[in-house]
């Protein structure tokens, strides 16, 4: 079987700063890959490139044979790639349920006239959306908090709600940006199980940015390491742990540059 997501040699620069250079990755259906690197290495920028928030200066991104370059973020989501955000971006004033239901919107068909007249199966569609959202929330253990405002959820719940929301778009590829950030050890353990679980249940291909090495080494099959916008290593967790370039990037050497640009 050929690759589902192919990223070939993409790069972007802001002003003179080359934020990401020659980034390439190939993921087959069902892969779970980690993307790690020190702060400011360009990991989130890669996500922004993949999801269309930024347009790459060069290179090709394709999903299931379809080229994604030049598409708007919502088109990429519709094509089957969804994401979470490092700095949680929930719809804070809206209810937990609505947060997930919004992500179902792109799979709906009712237009304005159907919405206003409630005709053409609009009611059934609403019901289907709600059921779907409730199911997802139940999986994420948020089933009893559906009416709460998203901003009032505890931090860990907000992170999980973001994943649930991303899943509601029916993605083939899921990009998780530091899902474990701010979680306690117990929550992190549960999160690992959850990611394995949803991967199986929804037949997902997952690309994961994470700082917590415990999580990354445990669940990822392959890992890509980024530093200064460039790939410095690629391999299985065991290989990465032994790779001298990775160790140097993380620990630094005596003459390592002290200041990194964000």
């Amino acid at each position: 079987m050929s690759a589902l997501l192919t990223v070939d040699n993409i790069g972007i620069s802001f002003g003179g700063l080359k934020a990401v250079q020659a980034f390439a990755v190939e993921m087959r259906a069902g892969d779970l890959r980690g993307l790690i690197g020190p702060n400011g290495a360009g990991k989130t920028t890669v996500f922004n490139l993949l999801t269309g928030v930024y347009q790459p200066n060069q290179g090709i991104i394709s999903l299931g044979g379809r080229r994604l370059n030049g598409l708007a973020p919502h088109q990429i989501t519709a094509a089957g790639m969804s994401r979470t955000f490092q700095n949680i971006r929930l719809f804070g004033d809206l209810s937990v349920l609505d947060n997930v239901r919004i992500a179902c919107h792109l799979r709906t068909r009712s237009g304005l006239s159907a919405t206003i007249t409630r005709a053409g199966g609009q009611i059934g569609e609403e019901r289907a959306i709600t059921e779907r959202a409730m199911e997802l929330l139940a999986i994420f253990g948020l089933g009893d908090r559906v009416d709460e405002q998203a901003r009032n959820l505890p931090y860990g719940d907000q992170r999980r709600l973001e994943i649930a929301r991303a899943l509601a778009t029916f993605p083939k590829v899921l990009l998780l940006d530091e899902p474990a950030a701010g979680m306690n050890p117990q929550e992190k353990r549960a999160l690992r199980e959850l990611i394995r679980d949803i991967r199986r249940k929804f037949e997902l291909t997952i690309l994961l940015i994470e700082h917590d090495m415990g999580v990354v080494m445990d669940i990822c099959e392959r890992i890509t390491v980024l530093d200064y916008g460039q790939i410095i290593a690629e391999g299985t967790p065991a290989e990465i742990q032994k790779n001298p370039a990775v160790i140097e990037a993380y620990l630094g050497t005596a003459d390592a540059p002290g200041v990194r640009k964000e």
């Binding site: 999801t51 928030v53 708007a72 973020p73 919502h74 989501t77 519709a78 969804s82 994401r83 955000f85 971006r89 929930l90 719809f91 804070g92 004033d93 809206l94 919004i102 992500a103 919107h105 792109l106 929301r165 991303a166 509601a168 778009t169």
Partner: peptide, 12 residues
């Protein structure tokens, strides 16, 4: 609520 997130969730 959040235009960037809305766009990322497939809202046109």
């Amino acid at each position: 609520e959040d235009e960037v997130a809305a766009e990322a969730m497939g809202v046109k």
